[in-house]
Simulated scan of single mutants.
Amino acid sequence: MLIPLLWLLSTALKSGDENIFAFPPQLIPARPTFRNFITVWQTNPFGRYFINSTIVAVLTVGLNLLVCSLAAYPLARLVFRGREVIFSLVVSTILIPFQIVMIPLYILTVQLGLRNSYLGLIFPYIASAFGIFLMRQAFQSVPKELEEAARMDGCSELGIWWNVMLPATRPALVTLAIFTFIGSWSDFLWPLIVLDRPEYYTLPLGVAQLAGSFSLDWRLIAAGSVISIVPVILLFVFLQRYIVPTETGSGLKG
């Protein structure tokens, strides 16, 4: 799994006179250089792309955590007619490929006037069936005694959700945040469809522009790719310790 990443980093660090297609592959550059990164950053608005991706990813994570946890709470802790049917219908939407709903989503986005905007990039990912499923499983693992004690103290359902459920399921929230951030940060298809103004381009679109800007100079394309994946790797390294407790507590392991 690490070999492609190492090869990508090696290509980005190679100078112009090194053969990046040599066989056997040379993973360690003979003369490492950061010139490719400097060239990519100076000749393209990668700073703007980075800011756009950060804004979209952070807002997507925040809204997704809010909506999914609010939707999952009644499905996990409240008793009402049709609860299991609603949950089954929500989970079944995971089976629908994005390509099927892509055109209706685009039409709706245009009708709402969200094309070429941050909100238009976030719109399809405000809620997710996987997020609702994950949070429901996490909420069901919280002892009922905590909920009953809060209710006896006069806490409302919204207060129980905020003061009891969310703190008790912090690992699940972090896990959902990681998955949502990675999906939003690396998304290419939806921004390509909904954007035609370069000032709103995200990093995946910016890296795609390098293929035309530099006539397939793979060193520069690799440098742009490394810039785009570093935040995801850092996020996963610092927060991955929360994933195992979440899988164990929610019944997702194995």
Score class of each variant (00 low, 15 high):
Leu2Asp: 00
Leu2Arg: 06
Ile3Gly: 01
Leu5Met: 14
Trp7Met: 13
Leu9Val: 15
Leu13Tyr: 07
Leu13Thr: 06
Asp17Cys: 05
Glu18Asp: 04
Glu18Gly: 08
Asn19Glu: 07
Ile20Pro: 07
Ala22Leu: 11
Ile28Tyr: 00
Ala30Thr: 09
Thr33Cys: 14
Arg35Lys: 15
Arg35Leu: 14
Phe37Trp: 13
Ile38Asp: 15
Ile38Trp: 13
Thr39Ile: 12
Trp41His: 09
Trp41Ser: 12
Phe46Glu: 03
Gly47Tyr: 03
Arg48Thr: 15
Ser53Gly: 11
Val56Asn: 02
Leu65Phe: 09
Pro74Ala: 08
Ala76Ile: 12
Ala76Leu: 11
Arg77Met: 02
Arg77Pro: 01
Val79Pro: 01
Arg81Asn: 11
Glu84Met: 14
Val85Tyr: 07
Phe87Leu: 07
Val90Phe: 03
Val91Arg: 09
Ile94Gly: 03
Ile96Asn: 03
Pro97Ile: 03
Phe98Thr: 02
Val101Ala: 12
Val101Met: 08
Pro104Val: 07
Ile107Asp: 04
Ile107Lys: 12
Leu108Trp: 13
Leu108Phe: 12
Thr109Glu: 07
Thr109Pro: 11
Gln111Ala: 12
Gln111Phe: 06
Leu112Lys: 10
Ser117Trp: 04
Tyr118Gly: 12
Gly120Asp: 04
Ile122Ser: 09
Phe123Gln: 09
Tyr125Gly: 08
Tyr125Phe: 10
Ile126Tyr: 01
Ala127Met: 11
Ser128Val: 03
Ala129Tyr: 01
Ile132Lys: 01
Ile132Trp: 00
Phe133Val: 00
Phe133Asn: 04
Phe133Lys: 02
Leu134Cys: 14
Met135Phe: 05
Gln137Asp: 00
Gln137Ile: 00
Gln140Arg: 15
Lys144Gly: 15
Glu145Lys: 10
Glu145Ala: 12
Glu148Pro: 00
Glu148Cys: 01
Gly154Ile: 02
Cys155Asn: 13
Cys155Glu: 14
Ser156Asn: 11
Glu157Lys: 10
Ile160Ala: 13
Ile160Glu: 07
Trp161Phe: 14
Val164Trp: 11
Val164Ala: 13
Met165Asp: 02
Leu166Asp: 10
Leu166Pro: 12
Pro167Thr: 00
Ala168Trp: 02
Thr169Glu: 03
Arg170His: 12
Val174Ser: 03
Leu176Tyr: 05
Phe179His: 05
Phe179Arg: 05
Ser184Trp: 00
Asp187Leu: 07
Leu189Ile: 09
Leu189Met: 11
Ile193Trp: 07
Val194Asn: 10
Val194Gly: 08
Asp196Val: 00
Arg197Lys: 14
Arg197His: 02
Pro198Leu: 05
Tyr200Lys: 09
Tyr201Arg: 02
Thr202Ile: 05
Thr202Tyr: 05
Pro204Thr: 01
Leu205Met: 08
Leu205Ala: 01
Leu205Pro: 02
Gln209Leu: 07
Ala211Arg: 06
Phe214Asn: 07
Ser215Glu: 11
Leu216Lys: 10
Asp217Pro: 05
Trp218His: 10
Arg219Glu: 01
Leu220Arg: 05
Leu220Ser: 01
Ile221Tyr: 06
Ala223Cys: 05
Ser225Cys: 08
Val226Ser: 02
Ile229Thr: 14
Val230Trp: 07
Val230Cys: 06
Pro231Ala: 06
Val232Gly: 10
Val232Ala: 15
Ile233Gly: 06
Leu234His: 04
Leu235His: 13
Phe236Leu: 15
Phe238Leu: 15
Arg241Asn: 11
Tyr242Val: 03
Ile243Thr: 08
Glu247Ala: 11
Gly249Arg: 13
Gly249Ile: 04
Gly254Leu: 14
